[in-house]
Every structure is written in C-alpha cells, then in structure tokens.
Nucleic acid binder design. Structure first.
Length: 426
RNA sequence: GGGCAGUUACCCAAGUGGCCAAAGGGGGCUGACUGUAAAUCAGCUGGCGCACGCCUUCGGAGGUUCGAAUCCUUCACUGCCCA
C-alpha cells in the first residue's frame, strides 16, 4: 500500500492536476476533503464513480470526506463541459433527485468510522436561503467579470452561437461559495472533482483566500477516456447508471466485461480497490492470454459485486455463461426466469400463437423489442435476429406454440448481445 | 426598439420551385473475421405495404402554385451589430 493518499491516487492515474502543495498536504496531515455531485438525474452513473471512489480512497487514508449533493447548484446548472445551455429542472425534481443520489453516495462511504466518519450534505441547505443583495455584496464583489470570462467553461460558451445565460455564468460563484461555506463550517481544505471542475475549484480557492486569507486546495481527476475515442460510460441504450432500475446488474456486468483490452488495466486502477500487485498480475494475464479476458472478468465481477451485491453478481455471471454459451434449449422454466430476470421482457397472450401462429415481424414489434415493422424486417434481412438462438432466415417465419420453450417462453435476440424475453401467458 | 443572419432527419451539415425521404460526414445498428475484444471490410439507418407504390417530415401557423424544404405573410426561438 502506498505511503499516503496522494501516492495512492497518483499510481492509479487519478491526479490530472492539483494546486501546489496538495501532495504535501495529503502526506503530512489528515484533511477534510469534499466533492460535489450534480443532481441532474435521480441516479448517478459510472462516470461519477471516479470522484466518489476517490473520496472513499481518501477516507481509507484517514482523511475526512464530505460528499455534497448539489441540490442548490443544480438549480442553476453548471456550464462546465457543456456546449449548450441546459433547461432548468423543477425544484421538486431536484429535491427528489437529491434524495435519491444521497442514498447512492452514502453506499460508498463509511459513516461509522470512529476517527474519520464521512459526511453527506446538500448544498441546497445553505444556498437556497441566500439573499441576492447580500450575495452580490459579500461574494460577487470578490470576482471580476474579467476573471470569470477567462474560465474555459465560460469562454467556450462565449465563442459559441448560443452563448451563455447569466444564470449559468453565475454558477462558479455558487460553487465557490460552497467551498467557502465548507471551509468555514468543517475546516474543509481540499475540493476534488473531474478535470472540467478545475475552473470552479480554483475560483473557490481564490474566494477563500480573499475572504478569509486562508489557503485551500484543489485536485482534479482525469476524464475517463476510451482507446477507440468514443465517450466513456455510454452504451447503445444510453448511460450506465448505478440504479438497477435504470441499468440492470446484468447490463452493468456486461458493460465492464466488454471493456477494450487497451482500457481495462486503467479501469481496474480507477474503479476498483485492487492493489498494485493484483492489477499487475492481471496485466500479465492480459498480455499472455488476452482471449481469456481475465482482467475484464475481474473488473466486471468486482464492480458488479461492489454495487449490486453477491447475489446479483452470481446471477449476472450465470446469465452471461448461459446466454453466450448458447445452450438455451435445455433450460428449465425456473432457470429461464432467473437468467432473464434482468433482461428486457414482455408478456403476450397465448392465443396469438395458436393455429398457424404469429408472424415473426409482428412478434418483434408486438413485444416492444422493435419500434417498427420496417426496422424488424430490416434486421431479419441483415441476419441479425435470432429466435431461441437460431437465426431467423425470412421475415415470413411464423412462430407457433411449438416454438415455446417450456411451453411459455420465447427468447429473442438482436445481434450478438441483445436479448429479449417473451413470456406467453393465458 | 432597429438592422442583419439563421432554425433541415440522433448530431453536424448540403439543398434556394418539380429529378428530395432529402447529398456528405459523424454516430448508431447488422453481418463477416474474432476473444461477447480491437482493427478491417460490407450492408442498413422516417413510417406503412415492401416491388416500381403510398403516407408523414425540413422551427409553428397561414398563403401563392398543377407542384414548396425551397417563394410570400406572420409568429416563435437563436446569434451578431446598432440604440
């Protein structure tokens, strides 16, 4: 184990940039550190795991973490990293999101520690009561517009057609105020965040210096990249969420399992608590026998277990084994239900399959797996549709009761990986 | 308040009266190869019947015309300049 938190973050490739003195700070004293999380949705996604897990890492080295749910700042909207203005969320929506996200944040931090328990706060508590005139006098006066428009997040938007609203322009003042508030209330000395937060963090450091004369620090994590240049954390069906209702444990497991060879070691460092020797071993395995995908398998296993628990992990692994082993036909009804618990599904009435049966195209559309008949027909033409793991050759294929597995299931598949279960009832 | 420019499919972006369901690029999907990888190659990418057909779409509404994404009016929004 590295000697201190800074070294820990460093070997994991998590230090993108930091303010002079952070290394010494983390090595020589225990500090209170905070990281803010937007509450623009009712769940965090895997991108948020980088700063969240880093907070947990810092806690393991004795530092005091504060996770801040941005119930106040999300009312305004952070322009950082955004190329266009965001619509405002309703107050009620934000409150609901904040509650949901607080629950997720809490799962990764230790609140029972005797020495350095984590704290979880919502910046709505101190931002909402602010009075405009006081704020402009007490906080606004410390910033020049010149300083503010020099920030990347603002400048990028000034150069664009759409521009930036005064609302979002003001955002950095609020986040700066957060830092000042936490500095005063908890003696918080360090703010962390993604690299796009650098401007907001340094603004806070600046505010603390001007208002209190004190020194605060910032550290930012790199943006997680993918070797093929596409955006990390996205799949066909959108972001990979922590909430199992949005991203099932099965999909979550599959997401990590599908990691590119070139990225997997990096992800093990960033997203898991595996030690340096453990990761090095996996790196050797990757070089020797890439087709075994030990590194990917470990990553998927550790991540799914950490987030969704052992039971969900076991189920995801079993499902993967069966679905990609191809042995669908010998399964019992109970096994099918279990394996497909996380896979999208639909129920259809049995009548439709009696007699000559139901056309495959109607089945694909009727079940909700495909949006339109044209799309379904096209997919079949491309050879991309499978019924019970057998490729469907022509779009006139009729599906009858004889096709039902265990008398009530149909397993549809699109391409190699996208499964859909139809349960026939009645 | 005035002037100018703009609003095209998931995104960017061509198209300035019929040959436009709409070029091109990106993204996405599928297939081949493979390791449920990468790279590469190929096909597909508005809806309905699928065959040459029909329907809906080019910011909203209305109009001109045999015929409009393309012209006119008006409204909305965005940007730039002026006040």
């Amino acid at each position: 184990m590295p000697a201190n938190a800074f070294e820990e973050l460093q070997w994991r490739g998590l230090v993108f940039d930091c303010i002079e003195g952070v290394q010494n700070l983390l090595a020589t004293q225990t500090v209170t550190v905070y990281n803010g999380f937007d509450v623009t949705a009712d769940s965090l996604h895997i991108g948020h795991l980088v700063p969240l897990l880093a907070l947990a890492r810092l806690q393991r080295y004795g530092h005091h973490p504060i996770a801040v749910a941005g119930g106040g700042t999300t009312m305004i909207g952070d322009p950082s990293g955004k190329s266009s203005e965001r619509p405002l969320l309703s107050r009620q929506q934000i409150e609901e999101n904040a509650e949901a996200i607080k629950g997720q944040l809490a799962r990764f931090l230790d609140f029972d520690s005797k020495t350095n328990p984590a704290r979880l706060v919502n910046n709505a508590d101190w931002l909402l009561p602010l009075n405009l005139i006081d704020f402009l006098r007490d906080i606004g006066k410390h910033f020049t517009v010149n300083y503010m428009i020099a920030k990347d997040s603002v400048r990028a938007r000034l150069e664009r057609e759409e521009g930036i609203s005064f609302t979002e322009f003001s955002y950095m003042l609020l986040q700066s105020y957060d830092f000042l508030h936490l500095y005063r209330t908890y003696g918080c000395l360090l703010q962390t965040g993604g690299s796009d937060q650098w401007g907001n963090i340094t603004a806070g450091v600046e505010l603390i210096r001007r208002v209190t004369g004190g020194t605060a620090y910032g550290l930012v994590y790199p943006l997680i990249t993918k070797a093929d240049g596409s955006k990390f954390g996205k799949t066909e069906s959108g972001a990979v969420w922590l909430d199992p209702r949005r991203t099932s444990p099965y999909r979550f497991y599959q997401f990590w399992l599908n990691t590119d060879d070139r990225d997997v070691i990096h992800y093990l460092k960033v997203f898991t608590f595996l030690t340096q020797p453990e990761i090095e071993e996996l790196q050797h395995a990757l070089e020797e026998k890439p087709e075994q995908r030990d590194a990917q398998r470990t990553l998927a296993r550790v991540m799914t277990g950490m987030l969704h628990g052992e039971t969900a992990l076991a189920r995801a692994e079993q499902a993967a084994q069966v679905l990609f082993g191809g042995a669908v036909e010998g399964l019992s009804a109970a096994e099918i239900e279990d394996i497909f618990a996380d896979v999208p599904s639909a129920r259809l009435n049995k009548d439709q399959f009696s007699g000559t049966g139901l056309n495959i195209v109607d089945l694909l559309v009727g079940s909700g797996m495909m949006k339109s008949r044209g799309e379904a027909r096209r997919a079949i033409g491309e050879g991309g549709i499978y019924l019970n793991n057998h490729r469907v050759a022509e779009s006139e294929r009729l599906v009858t009761v004889n096709d039902l597995l265990e008398g009530r299931f149909l397993i549809l598949r699109r391409g190699k990986k996208t499964y859909f279960l139809v349960e026939v009832v009645g």
